[in-house]
Simulated scan of single mutants.
Amino acid sequence: MPGEHAVPSWEAGKPAAPYRPGYELVAEQLLSYIVEQNLMPGDRLPTEQGLAQILGATRNVTREAIKILAAIGRLTVRRGAGIFVASSPGALDDDRLAHFKPTSMEHVMMLIDYRYLIESDTAGKAATLATPVEVQAIRGSAAESLAAGAAGDVQEFAATDESFHDHVGAAAHNVFLRSSVTNIRRLMSQTDLLLFHGDVPGSLEAAGRQHVAIAEAIASGNGEKATELMQAHIDTTRHQVERRIRDRLFNLATPGATSTAPHRARAHGQEQPPEVSAS
C-alpha cells in the first residue's frame, strides 16, 4: 500500500547510523542474551550454530563475535565441551560483573564513577604510606608514560599506564583497593577493545603529564593533593570517553563513517575483528 513504509516525520533528517562491524553488533546481542537469560559464570551457552539461530546472524559472524568475547575474557571456549560464561576477572569475583556491557554508555559511566572513588582514595593512601622504593617505582612509570605519550606510542603508553596505576595501588598497602583497581582496568580494557577497537580517547601526552603530577604529590606525602589530582585525572578520562561514545552512537565523528546499507546487512557482514593485544 502507498506510504506503508514511509519514514515518520520525526525520523526525517536524522543522520544515518554509524557503520559498525557485524561481529561487534552480534557480540553486543550475545552479551544482552546472557543478561536476559540470567546466565552466570560457568554456565554453558548454546552451540555456535544455536547462538547464530537465536541471534539471527550468520554462523561466521557469530564465530567472530564469540572469538572477540573470548579474547576480552567474557566467554570461555573449551574444545569438545562448549561455550561458557567466563569467570569474573580478578580476585574479588562478583557474578554481577558477568553482566557488564562494555559497549553500554550507562555501564561504562558507572564503572568510571566507581574508578573515581577507588583510585582517588588509593592515591591519597599511597601518599601517606608509600615507601621510598614504591615512590621511585611510581615516579619511574609516570615518566615512562609521559615519554610514550609524547612519542605517540599507544602500545608502550598502555603498558606504562597500567604499570603506573598498579604501582599506586601497591603503595596504598591495601589488597582490596589494589584488587579493585585491577578489576576496573580489566573491565575498561573490554570497552577499549570492543567499542574503541584498541584506540584510546584523548591525548596520551596529557595523561602522562597528569601521571607525573600525581607521582610528585605522592612523593611529597601530600595525600589531599594526590587525591585531587587523581580525581581530575579520572574526570578527564570520563569526559573523553563520553565524547567518544557519543561520537560513535550519534555519528558525530569523522565524515564518511556512515553506511546506507540496511542494519541487518551490517550485522551479518563478513568483517574481521581487530587484532587482539596480548597485554
Rank of each mutant, 00 (worst) to 15 (best):
L45N: 10
V77A: 10
A278S: 08
P41N: 06
V154M: 14
G198M: 04
I214G: 05
P273R: 10
N38V: 02
G82V: 00
K101C: 04
H99C: 09
E156L: 14
F100A: 00
T62V: 06
R266S: 12
Q136G: 11
L111D: 01
K125G: 02
A57V: 00
Q49A: 13
G82K: 07
V133I: 10
L249D: 13
T103Q: 02
I245W: 01
R238I: 02
L193H: 00
L117P: 05
L146T: 07
A86Q: 10
N251V: 03
Q37I: 00
V181E: 10
E144H: 06
T258F: 11
H197R: 11
N38R: 12
W10D: 01
D199I: 01
F157D: 14
I245P: 00
L45T: 03
T47H: 13
E134Y: 05
H99Q: 07
T58M: 14
T227L: 15
L195G: 13
A17Q: 12
A57Q: 03
L204R: 14
T160C: 14
R246C: 02
R266G: 12
S120W: 10
Q29M: 11
P21C: 01
Q53W: 09
S141D: 10
A130M: 04
E275G: 15
L45Q: 06
T237V: 04
T128Y: 08
I118N: 08
L229K: 02
N60C: 09
T103G: 04
A265N: 05
Y116D: 12
F100G: 02
N174L: 06
V200T: 07
P274Q: 05
S87Q: 04
T191M: 14
L31I: 07
A65K: 03
I184R: 05
V181H: 11
S88E: 09
P274D: 03
M105D: 12
S277M: 09
F176Y: 14
D153Q: 11
A170G: 04
A158D: 15
T122D: 09
L204S: 09
Q270C: 03
R264C: 06
A70N: 03
A217L: 06
G42L: 07
D161R: 08
F84T: 00
E24V: 03
G256Y: 08
T47Y: 15
V175F: 14
P8G: 04
V135A: 07
